[in-house]
Design a protein around this nucleic acid. Structure first.
Length: 360
DNA sequence: AATGCGGGGGT
DNA sequence: ACCCCAGCATT
């Protein structure tokens, strides 16, 4: 398996900025960004990030808000918060050097079994497995392994199998398996006709590629109806830093009010908040008065485990005058870009909309 | 062991 | 419009 695979990888690997170095900082950063995120998306973020935070020390010294700003739009923001904490731990505990040790790496925030293996193998060429979803898909097909990959216990089974089959060139082998999973041995329509290891693939021989990997877990998303308030005062709109009790904690956004929740989308259509109920909510949470200018049905936004059905509520605030607090800012629409604003809010803000707000 | 956590791509 | 993807932390 390994010989053909390594030759294929050498010839067909995609170019990525982090593949031009073995610097543990670059490998670590890229691996964190690549969790649940595709290569094409990561490249721009990675380049901008490296340009601003060129080593672990400069990242450790940064403000969390700025790190989040550089992560804006990438999602799973706890990755960014843990990345920042991890950089600080590496500076304070390990003298700014990444530990070349599996157990030590695992203790660091945001680094789990996969990422520890990826850093050790790719940066240090240690013969350690790095099992991600691609590896599990490739191995379960190649060996027709029937263990359930949605069960976290299965990871160790794949790790043993990887150790059995791993050549000395761990650095390239681990990346080759993942590259194969990402480009050839894909979930839906695997390109077996151009796969370098198809001749020995068990699933290929029995035409069972699509029954592997075995995965039982089903995801049931709940639906939430959410009012998103655009408080407008003298050409400025209010944003607040989302607190730890909220989704998207630490990022900025418009005030949100939970109207209704259901397992079924249809149950939400009848749930409408009256103007009076809204004004009561506003007054209970903020000490100013105003009137509702308009309601705009907004795009729905799908998160990992829930769906937001948003309505934008534009409210003209008459009193008090716009005052900033540490966690509440009144900003001109053009200044919104200075804050880390998650996609759920961003995608509902057209230029026309902002222009209209500005005129209020 | 189960749940929380974004956003993008393919069909 | 709908389906799929999937590491780590917390509980």
């Amino acid at each position: 398996m390994d010989k053909k695979l390594l030759i294929w990888y050498q010839e067909h690997k995609r170019e990525m900025p982090w593949r031009e170095t073995h610097d543990p900082y670059c490998i670590w950063l890229s691996e964190i960004m690549l969790q649940q995120t595709q290569v094409v998306t990561v490249i721009d973020y990675y380049n901008r990030f490296i340009k601003r935070f060129h080593d672990v020390k400069s990242l450790a010294e940064a403000e969390e808000q700025e790190v989040l700003k550089y992560w804006e739009g990438l999602g799973y923001y706890s990755r960014a918060r843990n990345l920042h904490k991890c950089a600080q731990a590496i500076v304070s505990i390990h003298g700014g050097q990444f530990p070349r040790d599996y157990k030590q790496l695992l203790k660091l925030p945001g680094i789990g079994p996969y990422t520890a293996g990826a850093i050790l193998s790719i940066a240090f060429n240690e013969k350690v497995p790095a099992v991600d979803g691609n590896v599990m898909r490739v191995y379960s097909r190649y060996f027709e392994l029937s263990c359930d990959i949605s069960d976290s216990k299965s990871r160790t089974i794949f790790e043993s199998k990887v150790i059995e089959t791993m050549p000395e060139d761990a650095r390239h082998f681990n990346q080759a398996i993942m590259e194969l999973g990402a480009t050839i041995c894909t979930p839906k329509m695997p390109k077996c006709d151009v796969c370098p290891i198809a001749s020995n693939c068990l699933a290929r021989s029995t035409n069972s590629q699509l029954t592997y990997p075995i995965k039982t877990q089903k995801i049931k998303k709940r639906h939430e109806k959410v009012s998103v308030f655009l408080f407008v005062n003298q050409g400025r709109v209010m944003i607040e830093k989302r607190n730890d009790a909220l989704l998207l904690k630490g990022l900025w956004g418009f005030p949100t009010h939970h109207v209704a929740m259901s397992q079924k989308e249809d149950d939400l259509t009848s749930e409408v908040l009256s103007n009076e109920a809204m004004m009561n909510w506003i007054h209970a949470n903020y000490d100013f008065r105003g009137h509702i200018v308009t309601r705009v049905p907004a795009k729905k936004h799908v998160f990992t485990h829930l769906v937001w059905h948003m309505t934008l509520i534009v409210v003209q605030i008459e009193s008090p005058r716009a005052i900033d607090y540490p966690e509440i800012k009144w900003v001109e629409p053009s200044s919104l870009e200075a804050f880390p604003l998650p996609t759920a809010f961003k995608k509902n803000l057209s230029t026309e909309m902002l222009e209209a707000l500005f005129r209020l």
